[in-house]
């Protein structure tokens, strides 16, 4: 597993996407699956940086770990921001997604796009650390 530690700042998002995209290309993932994984990681990283660190007045890092087995490519994001399990976020309903833009709530779409875009997502809180795991099938 290859690890990269980046400062938890929005400016790091493009670097995080680049790391994920390179790992996908090395693993032979399709362009479409690569984009879905990069988007998912980007959305959760944005939440970590914005809500987990900045809004709490905290600073810290995000550790990006890239792994691969015969079956799947995994990306693990670890941070020490405030505890947050993305799976507890209420997902927009079909009715919400049909609403005209005038009536839309601003927000709530990022986690929906993240969780809908990957083949497997898992979250753990261990000690003072959030661990968000994303996986894409390689077959």
């Amino acid at each position: 597993m290859i690890q990269h530690s980046l400062p938890a700042s929005l400016a790091a998002l493009s670097d995080i996407r680049r790391l994920v995209t390179q790992a996908c290309q090395t693993a032979g993932l399709s362009e479409e699956a690569t984009y879905r994984l990069a988007l998912a990681v980007d959305e959760i990283a944005t939440n970590i940086i914005t809500h987990g660190y900045e809004e709490q007045g905290l600073t810290g890092d995000i550790v990006v770990s890239l792994g691969q087995t015969d079956q799947e490519l995994t990306v693990l994001l670890e941070d020490t921001g405030v505890a947050y399990d993305p799976r507890t976020q209420t997902m927009p309903t079909a009715e919400d997604l049909d609403k005209p833009l005038d009536d839309r709530e601003i927000g709530g779409l990022g986690i929906f796009l993240a969780l809908a875009g990957v083949d497997r997502f898992d979250y753990q809180r261990i000690d003072n650390m959030n661990r968000n795991l994303f996986a894409m099938n390689l077959a």
Binding site: L39, D42, E43, T46, L101, I106, G110, L113
Partner: peptide, 10 residues
């Protein structure tokens, strides 16, 4: 590339 932050601007 467009994340949800772009959709929110729409």
């Amino acid at each position: 590339f467009m994340a949800s932050a772009g959709l929110r601007v729409l």
